[in-house]
Amino acid sequence: MKPFITLKDVVYEVGGQVVFDKLNLSLDKGKVYAVIGPSGVGKTTLLYLLAGFIKPSSGQITIAGDAVYDVREQTSFLFQDLGLFPWQTATEAVKMPLEISKDRRKHENESIVNQLLGSLNILSYKDQYPHQLSGGQKQRVALARTLVTQPDLLLMDEPTSALDAMTKETIQQLFLDLQSDRFMTSVFVTHDIEEAVFLGDEILLLHPNGHYQWLKNKDQSEGLSRETKAFYDQCFYVRKQLELGGAGHE
């Protein structure tokens, strides 16, 4: 199968500092990829390159066969701070991407938004502003906003970092349910090893020496429950690889 995303010899320099030097990656359609690594290694930069927010210094990124030169309409981005505007209610926030999108029929927007808010259990908060919502509710609104246009690629920058443990697990499960329904490709950055193991089909470890390493995480059909020994073994393995700092890997 042809990869959905390819990065070919991607170099990215900023302020004279090389963040990526000839990065080559292939990502398949419908899979969840976790990107993990120490701070400053370029995790968010990788997401920004995939999103088209920034351009590589050299090399090429292709998504669904097309070279990425700018932001794609079929790519959605879930920001670390969620990026909800204080002046938009949940409904307005979720409706916005549909109104911006060129090929949408406006009269359908209301029902699409209500359906999505309902599936994320936040329909009763549809008229609330961000400051009236809890962290978990805000997260669901932001998730609904990214999913409403039915993207083929979802990029998430530390999506649950601001949540308490219980809400985090609920949102993670919700994400997995949505992911299996929609068959989209998801790439997310996290500092949380458990999150990377629980959500990711594969984990991309970025190391400070510029090396990177792929870890096959789980077979989606089998699932990887948190309560199993296999889950904690995998977490331990990922931690160990991070500690090794990519020695011997490329």
């Binding site: 999103a51 927010f53 932001v71 794609r72 309409e73 790519t75 959605s76 981005f77 920001f79 701070d81 990026g83 505007f85 916005m96 991407p97 911006i100 999108s101 246009t149």
Partner: peptide, 12 residues
Amino acid sequence: HYFTVIRSFSAR
């Protein structure tokens, strides 16, 4: 980052 957010939706 509000400008980045709106840009992420390919907004004109």
